[in-house]
Design a protein around this nucleic acid. Structure first.
Lengths: 348, 348
DNA sequence: ACCTCATAGTAACACGTGTTACTAAAATCA
DNA sequence: TGATTTTAGTAACACGTGTTACTATGAGGT
């Protein structure tokens, strides 16, 4: 890479001092620059293809104009990967709008929290968005205490670090209320994950609220636990099929798990939705292409990214912020039985 | 955020000069430091939680230890998003291994190439990985001419910029040869995209090579063109169903398009694979969950990310590199008819 | 006793920018 | 005309680090 021009080169070409170049290019409000001088400077900068050296600027200004996205890869990594593109696009769009850059940092489970500390103490970024935080992370709490701008994607119980998440309770409730409205009363649930995960607890809570509001107290045998993947969904559904008399509908709090549950139904020779209706959660791309297409709760990945970006920028500008729970939308397809799914073809 | 310690603070606490701190922390090879002094410096740095200021370091060293990933969002954005998590993980892993950081920059279609120029001239990164490059981008060619380290993800005809891509020709050939081996001879193709896309031309080429090697010259009516989405696949398959006598198998050069093609077959009352066998390309997550599960050509997203990272790091270190075409793997599921897909249940 | 050499450590510079305090000239006012 | 303000622009400093050239001390050799 050849020599790249500095502000001194621009100054010389325009016949002014380097200070003037800086004042013009950052159009400083209180500076006295004649229109003619301004024009000459801009022309010189354009001609040389000058852009200020990022590191020098960061050093003198004391800020990096950068937000780091820490992407923890835990047991739920593959699941969360499905939302990564949308989240990134939403986050990046609000950052760029404000002139900020995005540093992406995946964190493997074996990696120490030291790398996050290094990112902060080494002033690689002005703020962090942290996705999939570990509950026992002292570094995070310490940084937050010291006022470093942090925003979580997903919730961390027992802290007041601001977070952005989808409203899991309301989303699950939406799904179950839809089934109730269709006339179902014997509705089971397969959670998306073990109850150590906040989202699993919340989605189960939404199920309970909807059922109780309908005057139904679901016995514990109606409740089974998934674990992110389809294998867990298959097992859980097999357990639910033991319930007598049979359940007429099951809310599966994750599309991936729902695919496994659907497989178990197929193995048992049961039809969806005629014998058992199904509703999922997440609205992954594949939900539209299962057989039958899966009714599910849409999670707005891009909106989550935008929200998380807005919050971290506000924190960087020193404002205090409050957490946000974004609303979900129920996407009605065929698996719940509300829509006809023509089945004249044998799908094998 | 409170005051964060500098190397001067470490020096004072350890009772040495700032130079010594720097020499110890970067363990300079030719420096004379007594073990006792070294210990005191390290202890002081640890105690203060010192990490060097990234911007200052970048400024003086003249390098950023950062690679930027430029993610173009064209008409194929949604399609390429499916590979983003894997590519990011692969790329990030090799970068971190060498102490490099990753700057992620999505580019909307309406955005000017000026932002890429600014990233380079402003020395925000030492090299770029560019995914989904536009063919008419003079900025890219100019940067490459001037020796700036660029590596493409996907190919750009008419340049010698190094690229990494999957071996589309071989992958398509694999898929079609598999169908031939199963006894099919009347095999059609639906491309993944219009032929203006290099990958579409190459996958079509692979199809042609396999067919010719089997002594079959496919007539033009066996060839239809997809356009990334399932709607295009449905249309294309409807066209192929006009061929008489009927084709016995179709290679669909994209899983998303294949889903649409499969839908058209279902509408026509045809069974897969009994009436028409199907093979896809990409191995998206949903391919394992279609009905029947889709035989397809696996694209190794992580390996692509790693390769692209290795190449850009080599370019940054001044080495010259040559492009790489990574091999694909055929994933045999049920849609090609090679594996039994039990169908005792009515899947609706 | 003198010179050489290895060891231990430091002072000073450079990186490229934003910004503050200052100067010089011109314009305005009394 | 002399005093004051406005306009136009600049010199100099600070940001925090890596590195080069240099000094000081003691050890070893003849």
């Amino acid at each position: 890479m050849d020599k790249v021009p500095t502000s001194y080169d621009v100054a010389r070409l325009a016949g002014v001092s380097r200070t003037t170049v800086s004042l013009v290019l950052n159009n400083a409000p209180a500076a006295h620059i004649s229109p003619e001088t301004r024009r000459r400077v801009l022309e010189a900068a354009r001609q040389l293809g000058y852009f200020p050296h990022a590191a020098a600027r960061r050093l003198v200004q004391g800020r990096t104009m950068t937000v780091a996205l820490i992407w923890h890869r835990g047991p739920d990594a593959n699941y969360r990967d499905a939302f990564l593109p949308g989240l990134l696009q939403g986050l990046a769009s609000v950052l760029h709008q404000q002139g900020y850059y995005l540093l992406f940092r995946p964190m493997e489970v074996h990696e120490s929290e030291q790398v996050v500390l290094e990112l902060a103490q080494g002033r690689h970024a002005d703020g962090f968005v942290i996705s999939g935080p570990r509950a026992d992370d002292p570094v995070l709490l310490d940084l937050h205490e010291r006022g470093f701008p942090l925003v979580l994607h997903g919730q961390l119980p027992g802290t007041d670090i601001p977070f952005v998440d989808v409203d899991n309770v309301a989303g699950a409730r939406q799904a179950v209320e839809h089934l109730l409205r269709l006339g179902h009363t014997r509705i089971g649930i397969i959670t998306n994950a073990p109850l150590s995960y906040v989202s699993a607890r919340q989605r189960l809570e939404g199920y309970r609220l909807a059922m109780r509001a309908a005057g139904i107290e679901p016995p514990s045998e109606w409740i089974q636990y998934g674990n992110f993947d389809e294998a867990s969904g298959r097992r859980a559904m097999q357990a639910l099929l033991q319930v007598r008399p049979r359940l007429s509908a099951v809310f599966v709090a994750s599309d991936m798990v729902a695919v496994g549950a659907r497989y178990a139904l197929w193995e048992a020779g049961l039809r969806v939705p005629e014998d058992i209706a199904l509703v999922g959660f997440d609205d992954l791309p594949l939900a539209a292409y299962t057989v039958p297409p899966l009714t599910t709760v849409h999670v707005p990945a891009q909106a989550l990214g935008r929200a998380v970006g807005e919050l971290v920028l506000q924190r960087i500008q020193g404002e205090s912020v409050s957490s946000r729970r974004l609303p979900t939308t129920l996407v009605v397809r065929a698996s719940c039985g509300a829509r006809k799914f023509s089945s004249r073809a044998n799908l094998t």
